[in-house]
Nucleic acid binder design. Structure first.
Lengths: 255, 255
DNA sequence: ACAAATAAAACATCAGATGTTTAGTATCTC
DNA sequence: GAGATACTAAACATCTGATGTTTTATTTGT
């Protein structure tokens, strides 16, 4: 699987990132990958400067970016330490994207999927009520692209665009901010159940059904079609990942 | 209503914020308040330095923080501009908190409440399945504090802690990241329906019901009790705010 | 042992110099 | 006069080094 990134679907300006952004990404990826225990000190500014071969201002700006995402906590005189994972802005697009760089953890993927199952049926239902003709057109186009996709690459991109269009059609700003979660879960899922392109085609009828319901302004229908589609995905993940559903309802060890 | 802030409920280190953080907040608040049109250039680094009376490094770090939250976009040679609202990390705790500084917009509050209605019944249902004894204890304590609250202040804090405890008891990291949304909606709601303390007490039985259901590991019961409570809140908001439900299902003007 | 003074480490801020990119303007060519 | 080129000013990016403040650890004195 090639290097499909979330940014590929974002309308971000394609400007080359500065040094601060690069250092931020590098550190961010390592933190998310778990290279540092929670609460541990990271190297001080000077060490980071020499390690990355940049000046102090660059390092400080990179650290500020990570502080803003909740990954780091800086204490004057003491040092900079990694915050508890519970304090991270897990919904930040960058933080989610950095999770893509590591082996998907079944437990985390299940949590993402649980959230998808909570969010998307509602979004589809609302979309059926409030979508504008243009928004419906976007969904239709994405659905069409899924049908016509030649490569698995194209299919995934179209799939992502489909779900994004539905989310946006719900016309709820807060909901749209959850786009990254849907995309991240979708990417991880593909990574896991990658095997057979024909397998993916199985989801086409359900997508078609979601589209039809939204076109018909059938809120209930859109919800349940989306629910069914996600339940199907859920099943396939559970089949592919042994530990996918392991901790469900049996959280024993202390927090 | 006094200056109750989200941070009051956060386990953040109570360290005095540096200059960069202060500048960031000041700018962030103004942006969120809508003082700048989308896409407009803000003052350049030098002007910001003189305006805030700080050095360039401080300004640059502040801007980096805002870039990380999606509010600003910096282009070398060109300038720094405010991004479209759709690109903001609306789920970022700071961005949500800055919304508290301005008059709550009915449309936005409704969107927050829609998301709460989507999230919290599910969370309560999951909590009923997976909550540990300690987590249930936390919920119980918050519920008890609501009953005993002497001031409206105390009541709001206890209310917030109740909903936070339930959210955390669902044992889903991604869900926990939505804490800020719940808190923000709750604060805005209080601001709107502030009038009568006795009015707030009305929600006590429903909170009690949620607690009971979770204690009994009754997932369905917890869900529906929470759903009922939120529907009630929703009604009160709709009654208090004329435009609360205005745009629902009638999104006419272009994006 | 306990407490106060001290020293070292680490972040915070400032100031200024230099490089790069962008956007706009002027100019030159045909 | 239209279009391409060259110049210039504005604005961000990066580096350097100096100075201040806070925290932590150590030393020292009784």
């Amino acid at each position: 699987m090639s290097e499909l990134l979330y940014y590929d679907l974002k309308d971000s300006a394609g400007v080359a990132p500065g040094l601060a952004t690069q250092v931020c990404r590098e550190l961010g990826r390592r933190i998310v990958a778990g290279h540092f225990p929670e609460g541990s000190l990271i190297d001080d500014e000077n060490k980071l400067c020499t390690r990355f071969g940049v000046s102090k201002s660059v390092v400080r700006e990179a650290i500020k970016l990570l502080v803003g995402k909740g990954l780091l906590e800086v204490r004057r005189g003491s040092g900079t330490r990694v915050r508890r994972r519970a304090s991270w802005n897990l919904l930040d697009d960058d933080v989610l994207a950095w999770h893509q760089g590591i082996e998907p953890k079944p437990e985390f993927l299940r949590q993402l999927m649980d959230v998808r199952q909570m969010v998307e049926p509602n979004a589809a239902g609302w979309a059926a009520k409030t979508a504008t003709p243009e928004q419906i057109e976007d969904i239709r186009n994405a659905q069409h692209d899924m049908e016509q996709a030649a490569s698995i690459q194209d299919f995934v991109v179209a799939d992502a665009l489909f779900h994004r269009s539905v989310l946006r059609a719900a016309n709820n700003e807060v909901l749209i901010a959850l786009e990254g979660v849907i995309f991240s879960a979708l990417l991880s899922s593909i990574k896991v159940t990658n095997s057979d392109p024909r397998e993916n085609k199985r989801s086409l009828p359900l997508h078609r059904q979601v589209l039809k319901a939204i076109e018909a302004h059938d809120s209930e229908g859109a919800s349940s079609a989306m629910r069914e589609h996600l339940a199907d995905t859920y099943e396939r993940l559970a089949g592919a990942l042994p530990d996918f559903n392991a901790k469900r309802g049996a959280k024993l060890q202390g927090e």
